[in-house]
Amino acid sequence: MGKKTVHISDFSGEVLRHEDDVVRVVVLEHPDLVAGPVQLEARPVEVESIDDAALDVAVVEIYDRHGNGEPRRVTLTAAEFDELATDVPMAQLLRTAERVKPARAPRRAADRPDYSTPEHAGKPHRGRVTDEEARYVRENLDEVNKRLADEGLRQIDPADAEHAARYGLPAPA
């Protein structure tokens, strides 16, 4: 027994034949879209008019007291936005306006290893050594060094003054 998959255009409901180039359309924003982006399939002829119907829009974020610290994102036609500039043309205003650096996504704590755990304690890192990590290293130095050696990382040398200070080991003589 075999199986056959039939693709149907989401726009027209017509069967997409093997020789058809299937066009994938991802809907990122729409007033009726409630659970994030969705994917639709169509024949090329069904989406030809999308480029012709495309609007010149301006997408802006408004930071004001109404947003409780969060911006409101607004999409409007470029012509409507251009009309807001009454002193100089919008094109000139946009060329000379102060540039905004894109916000860097904050690094989540979940993305960082917990160096106080047996699988990460003693690994080289730029952050400060927490009391928990230092205590674990002191109490399990042989185990930590074996794991570090197995992972091809530098081992903690109690005779090294920097290592001793970093992990609270007895100062070398």
Rank of each mutant, 00 (worst) to 15 (best):
L84H: 10
Y167G: 04
A171G: 00
G122C: 05
V23Y: 01
D150P: 00
G152R: 09
P124H: 12
E151G: 05
A171P: 01
Q92D: 14
P89Q: 11
P118I: 04
V129K: 01
S49F: 15
P118C: 08
R17A: 15
Q39C: 09
V25C: 05
A173C: 02
A79V: 15
V23E: 02
I50C: 07
P118L: 04
E80D: 12
V25A: 05
T96E: 00
A149F: 10
L148C: 00
E80L: 13
V27K: 07
D150S: 08
K123H: 11
V88L: 10
V27E: 05
V57Q: 08
K123N: 07
D142V: 15
G2Y: 07
A78R: 14
K146L: 06
E119Y: 02
A173M: 09
A161I: 15
H7D: 06
A53S: 14
L40E: 04
P102H: 12
R147A: 02
N140H: 14
T86E: 13
Q39L: 11
D142I: 13
A165T: 12
E98F: 13
D10A: 12
D20Y: 04
L141F: 00
A58V: 13
S12M: 05
V34P: 06
V137L: 02
E80G: 07
R138A: 04
P31A: 10
A121V: 04
M1Q: 12
R166H: 10
A58N: 07
A110F: 07
K146Y: 03
V23A: 06
D52H: 14
S49K: 14
Y136A: 01
N145M: 08
D52N: 10
S116I: 00
E143T: 13
D150V: 04
T75R: 15
P124G: 09
L169C: 03
E19Y: 15
A134Y: 02
I50F: 12
E19L: 15
E70C: 11
D87H: 10
R99F: 10
V25I: 12
A171D: 04
D111R: 01
V57S: 08
L40A: 12
A105F: 10
T96Q: 04
A161W: 15
E46F: 03
Y63Q: 14
E29D: 15
E151C: 11
D114G: 09
D51A: 14
R112H: 07
F11A: 07
R107K: 13
E132S: 12
R43V: 06
T130C: 11
E61L: 06
E61M: 02
V45E: 11
L28F: 14
E14N: 15
E143M: 10
P170G: 05
G152C: 13
H163T: 00
G2N: 07
E98G: 09
A149Q: 10
V144F: 03
R17H: 15
A109D: 13
D111W: 09
G152Y: 12
T130W: 09
G152K: 08
H66V: 08
R65Q: 09
V23S: 00
A161C: 11
I62W: 11
Y136W: 14
G36W: 07
